[in-house]
Design a protein around this nucleic acid. Structure first.
Lengths: 156, 156
DNA sequence: GAAGCTATGTCAGAATCCTGACATGAGTCA
DNA sequence: TGACTCATGTCAGGATTCTGACATAGCTTC
């Protein structure tokens, strides 16, 4: 069957499959994070800070694939609840380096374990070689879509 | 370096890479669709209808990864602008089968060509074998995340 | 036939996220 | 030094999407 020349064949489109996989992953993450009272963006922010302490608001936003404004309101809430800290004044420029508090680190631990189990389930049907191949393919797709090979990356 | 046992290593996480690739694809699609006055969901709806005429509102929502309510407001706008048609009364049950109008089909043609070029660019650095491997890996991930192998699929 | 379950279309309200805009600080170049 | 460009943090408004809820239709089971 396929298509008669017009349109994109959704059954064989890697783009559609990419969206489908990403959607399924997000749904699965939401399911395990909801009992912890945490959203995906919420978790992403904490995980980023655990690996790169001192990240700025804008860098966190890029790393979590949201805008600066969205990350800003999230950070204000996290700061109010005592999960992260930001200096009152910027040590240099306008950048406010953010750090996890012990409370934030504790909160992240449970969430991270939950997300790790989701990722393990996602990869359960793949061999190590297949995972490596998928990794390389995704890297290539991102590079091609972005146009340039360089660019600012929060997670290189 | 990597991680000291805690958390997910974002540099090697396939989940993070999946989100990154999906985000890059969405951004690229938005860029080419904006000049046509079309959003990604807008385009997805039209493309789905071109391949599966008579799809219902709920089925379109599942295929475009949004809720029924979101697709409903979109369909009302598309119907008002003459891109799709729905019968005033359901021929059977409550399901209203939706179809593209000639105007909608014309509108889709340009958008589809633009999206096709984005997908081609995305895959430009991959061989056919690599694309096939990525396809299989993504299929496996989706199957594992969903838990069951069956389930209702709009695009099988 | 009646009861129960699921799925659909739709409405209303709320939460989320983004676009636009502004002032400020750092780096670059003449 | 001064002008220019770029990035950052932040505020306000608006657009988009989701959650919750309702009535209804079909299917299954008794």
């Amino acid at each position: 069957m396929s298509q008669e020349g017009v349109g994109i064949d959704l059954e064989t489109s890697l783009g559609y499959l990419l969206k489908e996989a990403s959607s399924a992953l997000r749904t699965a993450m939401e399911e395990v994070l909801r009992p912890l009272g945490m959203s995906v963006t919420h978790y992403s922010c904490l995980e980023l800070l655990a690996q790169r302490p001192g990240l700025s608001n804008s860098e966190l936003a890029r790393g979590a694939f949201v805008t600066r404004q969205t990350m800003n309101v999230l950070l204000q809430a996290l700061e109010r609840d005592g999960y992260v800290t930001r200096p009152a004044e910027a040590p240099v420029g306008k950048v406010l380096p953010t750090r996890l508090t012990p409370s934030g680190r504790r909160s992240l631990e449970k969430a991270s374990a939950a997300v790790r189990s989701v990722e393990a389930r996602m990869l359960s049907g793949l061999t190590g070689a297949e995972q490596a191949a998928a990794f390389g393919a995704l890297k290539s797709m991102i590079r091609s879509l972005r146009g340039d090979d360089g660019g600012t990356r929060v997670v290189p």
